[in-house]
Amino acid sequence: MSSHNVLEGRGLKKSFGPTVALAGVDLTIHRGEAVAIMGPSGSGKSTLLHCLAGIMKPDSGEVHLLGQRVDTLGERGRSVLRRTRFGFVFQFGQLLPELPADENVALPLMLGDHSRARAVREARSWFGPLGLAGMEGRRPGELSGGQAQRVAIARALVTRPAVVFADEPTGALDQATGHDTMRLLVEATKHNDASLVVVTHDPHVAGWCDRVVEVRDGLMLTGRPHAASPSPHTASAHAVSPHAVSPHAEAGGR
């Protein structure tokens, strides 16, 4: 295994009763790489993502994170792994409605060993770069769909994860907002040296990723690199991390 492999799934199989969701998939995610998973509905994209992220145990096959096998960990171990090494952006509904945006972002840090003040300070430092300045005190119900997803992106990145998983993160947004949000997601993960695994139906979105993986009937079809299409981060990546603009970045970095 080469050293720039962050996450590696080998021979992943998963069935739900008679339904075969994954029929043996190999997929390697490299450091800082953005991978789009595409395919028709019901083809096994979410299942693949869940197996890679330690949400589900595959029936057979192995998952390695930075050379360490993680699919054999117990539920608690995988929970900790998900909280500390991975970030997640779901379609919607992942923010706690009672908490203001900044505390929603700070939550994963508070679950770790950060003090509340430090967690909130660190969380707030992400708001400016993600175009959320002034939204810190708003609650999820008072945010637009696109803003809420950006808060979710901030929450996924605030722990400085190795890999960010996103399952149709813009599926509930209109196309223009969806594109903006997705660009921000790709740029922000890239800028923070995190890899991105994103399930999407949108070829545009796939175009911004480094690689597209097609899944059909639980099998992987292709793994074509995207030499032709430049990743968007080259244009404005400096704008999407607190490192670039926030004086707190040093305090919060690991």
Binding site: A53, I55, S79, V80, L81, R82, R83, T84, F86, G87, F88, F90, G93, Q94, L95, L96, P97, L107, P108, L111, A156
Partner: peptide
């Protein structure tokens, strides 16, 4: 009322005890 949020939080590794 919050079942979806709770489920997603758990997916993201939030311990249920919290």
């Amino acid at each position: 009322d919050r079942r979806q949020t709770y489920a997603l939080l758990r997916l993201a590794g939030t311990p249920l005890e919290v």
